[in-house]
Amino acid sequence: MTHASLPDHWQELIAGYALGDLSPDEAEEVRRLLEANPALHQEVTQLQETLALLPYDLADREPPLALRSNILTAAQTETSTIPAQTPQRTTHGIHPRWWSVGGAIAAVLIGALAIDNYQLRRQVTESEEIVALLQQPSTQLYTLQGTGAAIEASGSLVVNSDHDQVVILVKNLPELPQSQAYRLWAMPQEGATPVYCGQFNTTAEATTTTTWTPPEEECTAIAHQVLLTAESASDPPIPAGELVMQGVL
């Protein structure tokens, strides 16, 4: 395409248009350019297509396993005009190998999750995610036990280095006020400085199942010990509060 009649900076202007960052003057200039040169719409489309490729840089985060069937079920139920149904595909295995690997651990964890009926759907999804995580070869499971004032608390910590994820499941751990949080620490070796791995709070029912990507690699490596403390939520990540739970592999 030749653009003899276009200003020198037309490409930058079109890029600014695709990015949505034009000043009012530039926007007026682009409006006139597009009006006079309809072929430039194709340039805009190409730049928008380019932007839409950026997420390929992030392409490897797996959605929760149960999401597919949730969406297909919702699609099916909200449409009354669908012809007598094609069965739902399950080729990517919503429940592929649940009980073949880690089944016993999974059963214990699902039992621990069945704390109440609140948000049952969410819990089922979470259970399936945890089960899926447990099937991975690079998963570690820590048993957490309460100490001190939180002696009644119990739970598990699942960490996976390939997926860079940690999942914490606890019960009988009282909810903290909003200004406070439970913080998770990993101790790579005995006597080492604890590494900050993130924070969370429990619910009014004194439970939680929380999944997140920790800030440091040490958090998903094999640790000598993991610790849980109660801290001020806005403090810098240095352990200063009371130890409430600890766990070993």
């Binding site: 985060r61 959605p63 597919r68 094609t86 739902q88 595909r89």
Partner: peptide, 17 residues
């Protein structure tokens, strides 16, 4: 619905990611 399933298999990691 199976077509939605196939499109999901194709694009869900990008959308979710």
């Amino acid at each position: 619905v199976d077509a939605l399933g196939k499109l999901y298999d194709r694009y869900s990691k990008l959308v979710y990611g």
